[in-house]
């Protein structure tokens, strides 16, 4: 393999694995910026993956090649409904955020497999989908010499969309009134409340956005990598996205960067055998890398002050 095609393979598979992580990590960022810890991202991704595959298999004849896109949006909506559990529990019912997030993680695979068995003749996994997010050449950009070949040919369109969504998320969080309010209820809900911001409403917005984006992450994972839904479709990606969010210091662009890096690490354990140097590294190191790096970064570089100040604290409005 020459250098250009090697680099092209590395970039496209890193982006392929990064795309679901970027969406989900952005979801986590919105939730935690509003002050609600969301360890339920794994469960939200599972529900998203299931919904997308179920929709895709059911309506493939109707929507043809547009199916994965519509299935992805459908999954996002289901994700919002699922995240509503977390919002009601943490915002209104004063549940511990970690407990409630864990409920999502316990509930999602059970519910998804239960429904899979109901919908697909009692089998614990679905068939392979016919219409998926295949690798594409991105118009115009892919015709740039060398750079286009490496970055934009036969690559994951979804990853580029995820990067755009990350930039939009950054603008929303830091340059709009909504973003300022969302961050303020995550930093100091009492002060925000005094200024007339509806703390509960903003926190609902944060959690529901995480449901939408997290489920899209699951849908992307299922429709571009695993191509069906089974018990192990989502196994750890939600927690990896959570790690990316922390690694990126609760900032959408940071989360995106970390997610791309983690995607790269994940892809190495898959394509590593074809790349010189990497093929000599035992795969255990590559698999453990994202998690170990997160610990190192947490210990070494991130002080306690980086997380939103009121992250994880239930706000009880005075009567």
């Amino acid at each position: 393999m020459n250098l250009v095609s090697t680099l092209s393979t590395v970039f496209s598979s890193a982006l392929l694995f990064a795309a679901p992580l970027i969406f989900t990590a952005l979801g986590g960022t919105f939730s935690e910026r509003s002050g609600i810890v969301n360890v339920g991202l794994e469960g939200i991704m599972t529900i998203g993956a299931f919904s997308a595959i179920a929709f895709n298999l059911t309506f493939a004849d109707t929507f043809q090649s547009a199916t994965p896109w519509i299935a992805m949006l459908f999954a996002g909506i289901v994700g919002i409904v699922f995240a509503l559990f977390h919002a009601v529990a943490t915002v209104n019912l004063r549940a511990n955020h970690i407990v409630s997030g864990t409920v999502l993680n316990l509930m999602a695979p059970a519910l998804a497999i239960f429904l899979t068995k109901m919908m697909f003749d009692g089998k614990g996994q679905t068939a392979i989908i016919n219409f998926n997010f295949a690798k594409v050449d991105i118009p115009f950009l892919s015709s740039i010499p060398v750079v286009g070949e490496i970055l934009f040919k036969r690559t994951s369109l979804l990853a580029y969309i995820a990067i755009i969504v990350a930039i939009i998320s950054w603008v929303v969080l830091y340059k709009t009134k909504f973003g300022l309010r969302l961050r303020s209820v995550g930093e100091h809900p009492l002060a925000a409340d005094t200024l007339g911001i509806n703390v509960y409403k903003m926190r609902y917005a944060g959690v529901l956005l995480s449901g939408f984006l997290g489920a899209i992450g699951g849908a992307v994972m299922a429709q571009s990598i695993t191509l069906n839904f089974a018990h192990s479709t989502i196994s750890g990606q939600g927690f990896m996205a959570l790690a990316a969010m922390i690694f990126g210091k609760w900032n959408p662009l940071g989360a995106m960067g970390a997610a791309i890096f983690f995607g790269f690490a994940q892809s190495l354990s898959v394509i590593g055998n074809y790349i010189p140097f990497i093929q000599d590294v035992p795969s255990i190191y590559l698999k453990v890398a994202p998690y170990a790096l997160t610990i190192i970064v947490l210990v070494g570089f991130i002080g306690k002050s980086e997380a939103p100040a009121a992250d994880g604290e239930t706000y009880i409005k005075a009567k």
């Binding site: 529990a89 549940a95 409920v103 316990l106 509930m107 059970a110």
Partner: peptide, 16 residues
């Protein structure tokens, strides 16, 4: 899997 759904629901109510 119904059992795991029930377990998750029980913990939801305990948590909330």
């Amino acid at each position: 899997e119904l059992v795991d759904i029930v377990i998750a629901l029980i913990i939801f109510f305990v948590g909330a």
